[in-house]
Computed example of a mutant assay.
Amino acid sequence: MTTHPEQGHELVPRPERSPEAVRVALARVAPHRLGEMEQHKEQALATAIQDGRIGHLQHWLTHWQVQVEIERRPDLHARHHAALTALNESSGKDAPEFRTAMDELHAVEAEARQAVSA
């Protein structure tokens, strides 16, 4: 069963900006990434405690909001997946297709980041 059935339709509503809401949304659109999210949270928390700055946790939450946005929108998911595939199939960092794929990854993430910050 795929979580990305049709292009153009959001799979779940955009979650509120809270760790629990983002986790619940991720569990619905990409449950295989929950472990990665948890590990990243533990790293952010440890760094925040060490540095005494909450910014690490804010960055973590924004990062996962962006990831959920990519996963919940089939258009962004398809572009992201195609760019990752192109990266993996490129002949190296000097290949033109590598740069094109990296540019597309950055564009997808920028679009998702703008959507969640609006």
Rank of each mutant, 00 (worst) to 15 (best):
Met1Ile: 08
Thr2Met: 11
Thr2Val: 12
Thr2Ile: 10
Thr2His: 03
Thr3Met: 12
Thr3Asp: 07
His4Val: 13
Pro5Thr: 07
Gln7Trp: 13
His9Arg: 15
Val12His: 01
Val12Thr: 05
Arg14Tyr: 04
Arg14Met: 12
Ser18Tyr: 04
Pro19Asn: 11
Pro19Asp: 10
Glu20Lys: 06
Glu20Trp: 00
Ala21Lys: 02
Val22Asn: 03
Arg23Gly: 03
Arg23Trp: 09
Val24Lys: 04
Leu26Met: 15
Ala27Arg: 09
Val29Pro: 03
Pro31Phe: 07
His32Pro: 03
His32Thr: 06
His32Val: 03
Arg33Trp: 14
Gly35Trp: 12
Gly35Met: 05
Glu36Trp: 03
Glu36Leu: 11
Glu36Thr: 14
Met37Cys: 05
Glu38Tyr: 09
His40Arg: 12
Lys41Arg: 14
Thr47Phe: 04
Thr47Cys: 04
Ala48Asn: 03
Asp51Thr: 14
Arg53His: 04
His56Ser: 02
His56Val: 00
Gln58Phe: 09
Thr62Gln: 13
His63Ser: 01
Trp64Val: 05
Gln65Pro: 11
Val66Glu: 05
Gln67Asp: 13
Gln67Ser: 09
Glu69Val: 06
Glu69Leu: 01
Arg72Gly: 01
Arg73Trp: 04
Arg73Glu: 03
Arg73Pro: 03
Pro74Trp: 01
Asp75Ser: 06
Asp75Glu: 14
Asp75Ile: 00
Ala78Gly: 06
His80Asp: 06
His81Arg: 15
His81Asn: 09
Leu84Ile: 10
Leu87Trp: 07
Asn88Thr: 09
Glu89Ile: 02
Ser91Arg: 14
Ser91Thr: 14
Gly92Tyr: 08
Gly92Ser: 05
Lys93Leu: 10
Asp94Arg: 08
Ala95Ser: 13
Pro96Phe: 00
Pro96Met: 02
Phe98Ser: 03
Arg99Ser: 06
Ala101Gly: 04
Asp103Tyr: 02
Glu104Leu: 05
Leu105Arg: 05
His106Val: 11
Val108Phe: 02
Glu109Ser: 10
Ala110Phe: 10
Ala110Arg: 15
Glu111Val: 09
Glu111Asp: 15
Ala112Trp: 00
Arg113Ala: 14
Arg113His: 11
Gln114Tyr: 09
Ala115Ser: 13
Ala115Lys: 05
Val116Lys: 12
Ser117Ile: 05
Ser117His: 14
Ala118Cys: 07
